[in-house]
Simulated assay, not measured.
Amino acid sequence: MNQDISPAALRQAIRTGEFTGNTSGYSPGFVQCNLAILPADWANDFLRFCQANPKPCPLVATSNAPGDVGLPLLGDIDIRTDVPSYRVFRDGQLSEEVPDISDYWRDDLVIFALGCSFSFEEALLADGLNVRNVSEGVNVPMYRTDISCAPAGPFSGEMVVSMRPFKAADAIRAIQICTRFPSVHGAPIHMGDPGLIGIDNLELPDYGDAVHIAEDELPVFWACGVTPQVALEKARPPFAITHSPGHMLVTDLRNSQLAVM
């Protein structure tokens, strides 16, 4: 499928099952979102967790009321069908991974759409930087760290990060570019020795795919929207739904609308 496809056309392809892959590089120019869906009686604490941890959990939109399946701010969306792959959690444990959550939907569910690093990749590419997961055609590597998030109610846990390698000068440029996009994780949180943030082996990501790192390149780490999945494991709500890592909600909101000039 052509990666320049419009967000609406991509969501339609996802609804029909024509597209089931990871969304990195698709619909350039448009915001992609991580997803967390929780029962209403857990929603306020999760909202406070996002507010306390804006780097890994930058909130872009929420549903207007429990049970709503749309996110009007982000486009003509049916959250039950418009993400390529979902994860269903029961009591904090991953129970299944499915391409459609229509049969799982409940009238008490609240949607949280969180900013995704795939959105700022466009700006990096436009500046001539080599975004390795895009050039290699794989999902971005993501790792659990030992960086503690600020707790809120039952929600806590360690931050997940995504990694892209750059030469030193390009890493500095990437920091400058991403600082303009706080709503999609903003500037990196670490670069260099992964052991300093609790990562043992870059060749074995916890989520996504490993990418090549040249000898003259530094690994650069951004806070990642998979972090809420770790928080769900800790909080153990009876039921929750997220996106599968790398399989995002692609919206009609333009990345430029989130940039801070």
Score class of each variant (00 low, 15 high):
Leu232Trp: 03
Pro238Gly: 09
Val230Tyr: 00
Pro238Lys: 14
Val220Ser: 09
Asp252Cys: 02
Gly225Ser: 07
Arg173Gly: 08
Arg236Asn: 06
Arg164Glu: 15
Ala168Asp: 11
Val230Asp: 05
Cys178Lys: 00
Glu203Cys: 14
Glu233Val: 04
Ala240Tyr: 03
Ala235Leu: 11
Lys234Thr: 13
Gln176Asp: 09
Gln176Phe: 04
Leu232His: 01
Cys224Met: 10
Gly225Arg: 06
Asn201Pro: 12
Asn255Ala: 12
Ser162Ala: 12
Gly246Met: 07
Ala259Val: 00
Val211Glu: 13
Pro182Ser: 06
Pro228Trp: 10
Pro237Lys: 04
His212Ser: 13
Pro154Gln: 03
Phe166Gln: 11
Cys178Ile: 00
Gly208Arg: 12
Gly192Arg: 14
Cys224Phe: 11
Gly225Leu: 13
Pro205Thr: 10
Pro245Lys: 07
Pro165Met: 12
Gln229Cys: 01
Ala231Trp: 08
Pro194Asp: 08
Ala259Asp: 02
Phe221Cys: 12
Asp209Ser: 14
Val211Trp: 05
Asp216Leu: 02
Ile175Gly: 00
Pro228Asp: 03
His247Val: 10
Leu218Glu: 14
Ile199Thr: 14
Val161Trp: 09
Ala210Cys: 10
Ile213Ser: 01
Ser156Phe: 13
Pro228Ala: 09
Ile189Ala: 06
Gln229Trp: 03
Met163Asp: 04
Leu232Tyr: 02
Val260Glu: 06
Gly225Gln: 11
Asp200Lys: 15
Leu249Tyr: 05
Phe181His: 05
Lys167Gln: 13
Pro245Cys: 09
Ala259Ser: 03
Ala223Cys: 10
His247Leu: 05
Pro238Asn: 13
Asp200Arg: 15
Ile213Tyr: 04
Asp170Tyr: 03
Val260Trp: 00
Gly153Glu: 01
Leu249Ala: 13
Ser183Gln: 11
Gln229Ile: 04
Val230Phe: 00
His190Met: 09
Phe166Ser: 11
Glu158Thr: 14
Leu196Met: 15
Leu249Asp: 11
Pro219Gly: 00
Glu233Thr: 12
Val226Cys: 04
Pro237Val: 06
Cys178Asp: 01
Leu196Gln: 15
Pro228Gly: 02
Gly198Trp: 04
Ala174Ile: 02
Asp200Ile: 15
Glu158Ala: 08
Phe221Gly: 07
His243Thr: 01
Gly157Gln: 06
Leu202Met: 09
Ala231Leu: 08
Leu258Arg: 01
His185Ser: 08
Ile213Arg: 03
Ala259Gly: 00
Ala231Thr: 07
Glu158Tyr: 05
Asp170Lys: 03
Pro182Asp: 06
Leu249Met: 13
Met159Gln: 12
Glu233Ala: 07
Ser156Leu: 02
Gly195Ile: 04
Glu233Lys: 02
Arg236Trp: 00
Glu233Gly: 07
Leu253Ser: 02
Leu253Arg: 09
Gly208Lys: 11
